[in-house]
Design a protein around this nucleic acid. Structure first.
Lengths: 222, 222
DNA sequence: ACATTAAGCGTCATGTTGACGATAATAGCC
DNA sequence: GGCTATTATCGTCAACATGACGCTTAATGT
């Protein structure tokens, strides 16, 4: 038999959409191992702290964002024996979907943090794998939950929402069919009554997210 | 700052269908805390062991079943500070969907193990919550994956498969529409050429699981 | 032989999807 | 102002999927 104890960390896969691409918040490592490599932000779980609480705390430390803004959920746990050369480390990864933050990353730890495209390879530790799992989870969840709205501001247009799907899925969707599906799916979005002109073209209605937690029927990937 | 270390365990939510009900493998605790209460089987992760490997080992120890028989996946991780009065314990829960085992539970640890209906309440620790999460995951996964076949023997009839859905979802499904959906869904099941007479009635064709990992279109809950 | 049971095929009205035409409402340009 | 480019939104239609349910087939039990 053996020790059975390990260090426990929470790492975050923070996803957002900037400049039309899916991006993830990464930090540059300042210490060995993997010195100066990009890595997912994260830290140790405190002694009296629940895992969710640790994730919420890290999210605030890294982005200054309150967890109510976007969406935060547990992703998976990684604990292969050799994944950190310093010793046994169990990492509980969390996935967050966030709107493009209007306030720049102001927090203290965030000094070294930067948004990078998700296809950035060569992360420290097994973070490539964790990131890939997070992106795949996000892609799958857009199908049968209204979570795409977590990437949007509080009020958004149907085109904004379509942009989220197109970016995350890397596809083009028919604007007319997408509009029909989104507005007829029970509880997905509800109109605010306002409208805006985005760039060119006819002004669009503004929506906010509806009460549904599951999409009926789902929006399946093409 | 604090210690940041914790004991790490792997607990299993082993689900199967017996006597027409969804059942979970539980063990009676022989020590404090929660003495003589039902609990999920599990144990410590060894020092040089990956989490998945620990889950596979526990599965074999508890049931004698090779992990290739059914389906095993990571469920979620639980680490609230007070969840084990003896100290900080992080539990990585795994979910397994297993066929009704022809070989009785023969393993050593399995002496105290017993299949119980999943609505059995009052488990030790936070195991009620873990079990509920596992059952909900199973229910959801039947919709868009072919995992219902994991509850069946290697060869099964459409009626067997329908029984799985009806038991897990607690609904009745129309046999004719179900038959059509299952046999037309690409890669869900493939005929073996054999057939059997189960009890009364016309003999049914035998199928094995097909190559699909995702159901297109999905089988949505009524 | 006949009733009973369950498998598997067929039908039909309704709902959903994908492809794409048509119209509406704005900005920019002349 | 009038024209054009651009985007939002509505509408149409054929193909496909779904739910309700009738019918035939091939077993078992009496």
């Amino acid at each position: 038999m053996t020790l059975n104890v390990a260090a426990v960390t929470v790492d975050l896969v923070l996803l957002t959409i900037r400049q039309g691409t899916l991006q993830v918040l990464l930090v540059r490592r300042g210490i060995e191992p993997y010195l100066s490599r990009w890595a997912l932000p994260g830290g140790f779980v405190h002694d009296d702290e629940d895992l969710d609480a640790a994730a919420i705390r890290e999210l605030r430390e890294e982005t200054g964002v309150d967890s109510s803004a976007g969406h935060l959920e547990q992703l998976a746990t990684y604990g292969a024996p050799g994944r950190d050369p310093r010793g046994r480390v169990i990492t509980v990864a969390y996935l967050a979907l966030l709107p493009d933050l209007p306030a720049p990353v102001a927090g203290s730890d965030a000094a070294h943090a930067e948004w990078r495209p998700v296809d950035e390879p060569e992360l420290a530790f097994d973070h490539d794998r964790i990131l890939a799992d997070g992106v795949e989870r996000a892609r799958a969840k857009l199908e049968y939950t209204p979570l795409a709205t977590a990437f949007c501001a509080r009020e958004f247009t149907v085109a904004d929402l379509r942009g989220v799907y197109e970016t995350v899925w890397r596809t083009k969707l028919d604007p007319r069919n997408f509009h029909r599906k989104v507005t007829t799916a029970e509880g997905f979005v509800e109109p605010t009554g306002h409208s805006v002109t985005r760039d060119r073209g006819r002004p669009a209605q503004l929506f906010r997210r509806g009460p549904a937690t599951l999409l009926h029927p789902p929006l399946l990937r093409p």
